[in-house]
């Protein structure tokens, strides 16, 4: 990065401010972990302890015994994995077709995909629910997963990525007699791997963190996912914003939902962060 003479001192001061901001920004998550290891009395203490004293595991114990957190976790994993596999599959095939092939209507389809990305997902919650009702999929795994199969953002990402691929490879493979299916599996998919990794990560996370749709489509306890289950932990206490909420347990549950995602994010941060900016920044 080019440095400007007048900028040095200013950068030092401003970056300290940004650093403090980043700590404040992360603080609620630290507080969640602290709360999860604190006694119930400790979470209500004024002034609070900034490190749990004593460190207790009781919240996790009672959560595992009294709530459905094991089921919620399992459901979130199953739903997340299935949605990811399906979304990656459809994004790979459709993104490749839209990016590399010219066929009648391809521009119309891509335009449609882009437009649907602008439609707030809340707009379609009701008709989607009616579709699931007609299919008999309300309160089922299929019902939770189905809306994520056609992942417009994934198609968009893959289609953009195909423009960076060398077309000569495809031509020479065709000359060598590879059929379109063979070409797709042995050449296109491996080349698309970075884009597909990003699509997979986003599909998994949006499923893991989805709230509105899962709240709408899930009725029975045995199908609850982590977000829906954690919310029910708050509401089953029959109160919002008062002392009846089992705070320490809720914090333990939130920590259980958060930690796997944090680990995945830290391991895959490149794909993650590059994926976030991929759609927005090009052509400057």
């Amino acid at each position: 990065m080019t440095r400007f003479r007048s900028g040095r001192a200013a950068v030092a001061i401003l970056s300290s401010i940004v650093f403090v901001l980043s700590i404040l920004y992360l603080f609620p998550l630290y507080w969640m972990v602290v709360g999860s290891f604190t006694t119930v009395a400790g979470t209500l203490k004024v002034p609070p302890d900034f490190f749990p004293n004593p460190v207790v595991l009781g919240n996790y114990g009672s959560l595992l015994n009294d709530s459905g957190i094991v089921t919620w976790f399992k459901n979130s994993v199953v739903v997340g994995c299935l949605s990811t596999i399906l979304a990656v599959g459809t994004s790979a095939s459709a993104g490749y077709a839209l990016g590399m092939m010219r066929f009648p209507g391809s521009n119309v389809i891509f335009g449609g995909v882009l437009l649907t990305m602008l439609v707030p997902s809340a707009v379609t919650v009701i008709p989607l629910f009616l579709v699931m009702h007609a299919l008999g999929w309300v309160d089922s795994y299929q019902g939770i997963i189905a809306p994520g199969i056609a992942y417009a953002f994934g198609v968009f990402l893959v289609r953009q990525f195909t423009h960076t691929l060398p077309t000569e490879i495809f031509d020479s493979a065709r000359v060598d007699g590879a059929g379109e299916v063979r070409l797709f599996w042995s050449i296109v998919v491996p080349l698309l791997r970075p884009a597909l990794a990003a699509v997979g990560i986003f599909a998994f996370f949006s499923s893991w963190n989805d709230f509105l749709w899962q709240l709408v489509v899930i009725n029975s306890d045995s199908l609850k996912t982590l977000p829906v289950g954690l919310a029910s932990l708050v509401f089953s206490s029959g109160a919002t914003n008062n002392t009846l909420i089992p705070l320490a347990e809720v914090m333990a549950g939130a920590t259980i939902a958060f930690v796997p995602m944090l680990i995945a994010f830290l391991l895959l941060q490149r794909q993650f962060l590059d994926g976030v900016s991929a759609g927005a920044v090009n052509g400057i």
Binding site: W31, N209, F211, P227, L230, V234, N241, V250, A254, A257
Partner: peptide, 11 residues
């Protein structure tokens, strides 16, 4: 996710 952060902010 906003679900987890909302729960923390509730506290």
């Amino acid at each position: 996710s906003s679900v987890i952060l909302s729960l923390i902010w509730l506290w």
